[in-house]
């Protein structure tokens, strides 16, 4: 409950939202799905700017890739054929196990990737595909790669007067991606999230990327581990297992009250091995 809340704005255009964001940098917070704001016990927030009606809720495909508005809900992502078909279903799989049906109707793409809770599922998938954010302010629009956004927490990479309007999932036509969420129950925070995307040419990995989240406080790209597989034959299970093992040592883990770091280290290789296997399998099926 926001005890000190004084203003609730629901602008009907992006311009108006940007103006309000510009005028209310002190004690103001953007709200879209609302799930993070409502769950917080924040006594500092005086103003909420609801950007649900700013028209940033479209999903379109163009020559650069798939563009999804920041206020697109998780449910809408899952209903979109563009997202289903994107990169072997990478984003679809990452979105599929987020929270529950009613919450998926509320949680937004923008909210999920900007809050970037340790257990958030989409951020790792965004890292894998090299997503790019459009960040608008009153007089400007800038592009921010998601990789840069999560070097520190995204909230630090975006100023108070800025609004993320769109996520570009760059064209990855020749890639296949798979994502897995490991959790105790279905409607649960991830114990570990892992994703792999790869481009396989002539039976070998021309490019491959690993990402993990729910391990540390921020999602991580595991470039070293993925590099071990670059050029390796796609069916080389030994190489895959080696890279998967390396992923456990490359990942930075922080404490999780539910399970030990050792446990997470123990299971991460299995998750990556299975992901690689699925990527390879689908790639074969696709040819």
């Amino acid at each position: 409950m926001l005890r000190k809340l004084e203003n609730y704005y629901k602008p009907s255009s992006l311009q108006e939202a940007l103006r309000l964001a510009d005028e209310n940098t002190e004690g103001a917070k953007l709200i879209a799905g609302g799930t993070a704001v409502m769950a917080a016990k924040n006594n500092e927030v005086k103003t909420l700017i609801d950007i649900k009606n700013t028209g940033t809720d479209k999903i379109i495909k163009d020559e650069n890739g798939v563009r999804a508005g920041a206020t697109v809900t998780i449910a809408s992502l899952l209903e979109s054929n563009e997202i289903k078909n994107y990169c072997g279903g990478l984003i679809y799989e990452a979105a599929y196990y987020i929270a529950s049906t009613p919450l998926r109707n509320m949680i937004t793409l923008g909210g999920n990737i900007i809050q970037t809770f340790p257990w958030s599922d989409l951020p790792a998938a965004l890292l894998l595909c090299g997503a790019e954010l459009s960040v608008a302010s009153k007089n400007n629009i800038r592009k921010l790669s998601y990789i840069n956004a999560v070097k520190k927490h995204p909230s630090l990479a975006i100023s108070k007067n800025e609004i993320v309007t769109e996520v570009l999932f760059p064209d990855l036509t020749s890639y296949t991606g798979k994502f897995t969420k490991f959790s105790q129950t279905n409607f649960d925070y991830a114990i570990l999230d892992a994703g792999v995307i790869a481009k396989i040419k002539d039976g070998a990995f021309e490019d491959i990327r690993f990402a993990v989240s729910a391990a540390g406080s921020l999602p991580q790209l595991l470039s070293e581990s993925a590099a071990l597989l670059k050029g390796a034959p796609a069916d080389d299970k030994g190489a895959a297992a080696k890279a998967a093992r390396h992923a456990a040592s490359e990942t930075i883990f922080t404490n999780d009250k539910r399970v030990s770091i050792e446990y997470k280290k123990e299971i991460l290789p299995a998750l990556f091995e299975r992901l690689i296997e699925r990527v390879v399998k689908e790639n074969k099926g696709g040819n």
Partner: peptide, 24 residues
Amino acid sequence: FIFDKKGRLLNTSFNDYKIFNAVD
């Protein structure tokens, strides 16, 4: 129940005390 070293219960919500839903 997950406790800290001083006997404080740490998982006091359905977010981290997981009871089965229909999918489970």
